[in-house]
Each structure stands twice: as C-alpha cells, then as structure tokens.
Design a protein around this nucleic acid. Structure first.
Lengths: 242, 242
DNA sequence: AGCCAGCCTTGATCTCGGTCAATGCCGTAT
DNA sequence: ATACGGCATTGACCGAGATCAAGGCTGGCT
C-alpha cells in the first residue's frame, strides 16, 4: 500500500486531488509524510454562491485549496463602492501567508468546494519543506503579475476593451475544452453583471451594453444570460486592446 | 576584524548599507558569510531620470536593491497607452524571481542609485538561506497587497480621490521627517505630472486641475512644481475616499 | 399554470474627465 | 540678458460612461 493510497483512503480526508494534477496546485511540492499529515488536518466544505469566506473567526486561521468553483477577492471603500481585486479558480490556494490581518475579503462567486487546512499546519510545512514555500511564493508572484495586468485594464482601457479582456480571461480559466491553438471557446460566466462591473470598474448598465454590442456584432453568443460562446476568439482578442 | 567590517571595507563593493537599517531591505536575512559573498559580486550604479533599467540583455540577468531614488514599473499597450503598475522606493528589491521573462519594464523616475547582483548569486542564496527567500516572499506579498489597493483606486475612485490617495502614498514613502502621529508632511514629488497621470489612469490636464484645486482649497502648497507641503494631512485623507 | 423576485436590458439624460488649443513658467545654454 | 525647450496650467468644448427610470426574462414557488 503506497502513501498515495493512504492519503486517498476512507479514514482520512481526501487531500485535494486536483493539487497534483494541475499547474498551480500547492501540495505537489510536499513529500509523502507531509502529505499525509496535511491530509489528516484538512477538511472539505461546500459553500453556496454569496457565502463569505474567511469572514468568521474560524476561517481567519485557515488556508484553503479551491477544488471547484470561483472565489472573488474584494475590497470595499467606506461608502460601499466595491472592487474585485482577484478571482481564484481551482486549484488556486486561498489565504495570505506571513501576515495575520487581511484587508481583503473573499466570497464565493459560484458554488464552491474547498479543502481547508489549519494555518499552523501550513506554516509548519512552509518551514519544513522549502519546495512548498517556493510553490506558495510562486503563486504569489503569479497573482502579482495578474494584479498588475488588471491595473493596466482598469487604468487605461475603454469599457469595451475591459469587457473583451474579461471574457478572454474567463475563457482561459474556465472553458473545460480550452485549447490555445483553437479559435473557439464556450463557458458559463461565473459572475453576475454586478460582479463583472465591480471587477472592471464599470456599472452594471455599461457591462450589459457592451455585452449586447459584442452580441449584435456577432463576436459572441449568450444563452440564458450565463452561457457564453465565442465563435471567433481572435476577433475578441482584437477588441481587448492588446 | 568582524565580517561586517569586511563587507564595508574598501576592496569590495559596499553592500547596500540601507538593507539592514530599514524595514523592507532584503539582505538582513543573510548570514555573514553569504553577506560577504553577495557583496563581492555586487556593483553600484547611478542612473539618470528616464533611464531604462532591466532593458538591456545585461540587466535582465540581475537583481538590484534600490539605494536611493524612485523606480517606476510600467506596462504599455501596443498603441502606446501606458500604466505605472508600481513604484519602488529605497530599500526595495528590484527584479522578478522565479521567472525568466518579464513583461514589466522598469525606469528611473528620479536620479536613482542601485546595488546590483547577478541573478545566479541571488538564486543560490535563495536556496541556501530560507530566511532570505522568506524575505523576498514577504516583499512580493506586500507588493501584491499594494497592487490590489491600487486596483481599488483605479477602478472605483474619482479623479480628486485618486490624486489625494497618491499624495498620501508619496508622503508615507518619501517624507524624510514623516511621523505618523503628526498631521503634516513635506516632500518633493518624485514623478512628473505625466507620470502621475500614468499611475492614476488620468490625463496630465486632470492631474494638474486636481492639484490646483487642492491648492486653492488650502489643503496643500506647491513650490517650483515639485515641492509639496501638506499642512493638514487629515484633510487630505478625508479627500482620499477612505 | 400563474405569480413573484431578482437579474438583466434598454432608453433618455447628465456629468466627469478627456481632448484640443493657447499660454505660462522655469532652468539651461548661448 | 535673452532665447529656447520642456513641463505645467488654464480654458472651451466634447463624448464615454454614469445615473435615472422603465420594462423584460427567467427560474423558483404555490
């Protein structure tokens, strides 16, 4: 019986199966013993769209892997204006290492399943396993690159470029059949129009108008307000403002 | 003779004296032997405002500590629209670990002095000294927090809130006499109006108009286009949109 | 089926910030 | 001292996107 089988046996929680399969998963860097220890302390949850993550005192002391669904990271000004500052897709890691406080709040955008670990366990593994810390470091740097990319979109792109850029990003992250060589994408939007507006620094109405324009220009099709089909990705790219 | 004296003796380059003195410096986490090795491979430069850093093939293979001055990190769209995605103040660390390519370019905003290290040396020390990697990790996370903070400013604040927010950030980073308890600040702007515009997602003219408004409302004084005095910081904070 | 609530779309109008253009200021070189 | 070049300010006007205000789908409920 191998350790991997141990990890996935019934008497201990399953350790985020996606971790070792996909690029940004965070557990692949652990050795078998650590993997078992981490799995023993882990717990899986499902939460509904709209649920506040890391909100209660409990969650503030834990980290999670996103197993499925989309989590939005938001910041809110005192008068209620809101900005989404990041989206976490499976198998991203959720939580802010090396600091207790967090001015960012996390909320489930869709139905989300999570695998949570106690903060102390993760922090011990960071110390014990340099590869694990490296992995977290690497994810933080990717998130930094992404955040800076969105700064350009927020600061310098027009409304229609913003919406096109957003759709391309979603296609890259969600479309299950996504193949970069192929000029086609289809996916369910994980965000409402209000969320998209909060992500792009626009209003609901502007997002809606830009989507209809893309629709009437035959760049995309939308069914049931959620399901988007991009027949011609390169035309969408041309509208995203490079 | 102590190692520290070695490091600062004349026959090898001085190792970023600021590193151990100020909070975000990156060399404080090294042990004495490593400090000497790093210092031996380091080289100091002074560059003029406007100089492209990391532009040439040489610089792409090195990391630097910013010893003085301000470096702007920019991203540019294909049609020339530009966005400043970060500012590095002394003693920040400059360079993108764990990845060869960098889509961000760095430029001296003011006169800048740098202490550069070969990429390979830094990467070896990251492996050898967990505290050093932790320090870089920690800076990356701070930069991520900052970037996300600016996303809110770019996406959700008005022009006048943006300018107020910018001035407060500069005061926090530059004002040599800065004391958080005191309701006053004075500093030289490290950026031109064009740079401020590229940072805030505005035009030169709007930046200028907002600065004159702050001036006529007696929130700030400006001498010689560069030197800013904030007599009443909390009034500026009230205009920054929380 | 029919109703209701929550999103989403569409239209009319307004406004903030962008654009275009002229002028002013300051530091440097002649 | 003057002239020049680069940055900054100011004004007049315009337009992209916000705001305000109706409706329209759609999915869940009785």
């Amino acid at each position: 019986m191998t350790v991997r089988q141990d990890v996935h046996s019934d008497d201990i929680p399953v350790l985020c199966q996606s971790c070792e399969a996909r690029h940004r998963g965070v557990c692949g860097a652990l050795d078998p013993d650590q993997l078992v220890a981490l799995a023993r302390s882990s717990s899986k949850h499902k939460v509904e769209p709209g649920a506040e993550l890391m909100g209660d005192a409990e969650a503030i002391h834990s980290y999670s892997n996103v197993l499925s669904g989309v989590v939005k990271l938001t910041k809110t000004l005192s008068d209620g204006r809101q900005q989404i500052v990041g989206l976490q897709f499976a198998p991203d890691f959720l939580g802010r290492p090396l600091k207790a406080e967090n001015v960012i709040s996390a909320e489930a955008a869709t139905a989300v399943s999570l695998c949570s670990f106690p903060k102390v366990t993760i922090e011990r593994m960071m110390k014990e396993s340099p590869g694990f810390e490296r992995r977290l470091f690497s994810q933080a740097l990717s998130e930094l690159d992404e955040a800076r990319g969105w700064m350009v979109t927020l600061g310098r792109k027009t409304a229609s470029e913003k919406v096109a850029t957003f759709l391309l990003m979603i296609a890259r992250n969600i479309d299950p059949t996504r193949d970069p060589a192929v000029n086609f994408a289809a996916f369910d939007l994980p965000l409402t129009r209000a969320d998209i507006a909060d992500f792009l620094g626009l209003t609901i109405e502007t997002v809606s108008r830009q989507l209809t324009r893309l629709r009437t220009d035959d760049v995309i099709r939308i069914e049931n307000n959620r399901h988007v089909t991009v027949e011609n990705l390169s035309r969408l790219e041309r509208r995203s403002g490079a």
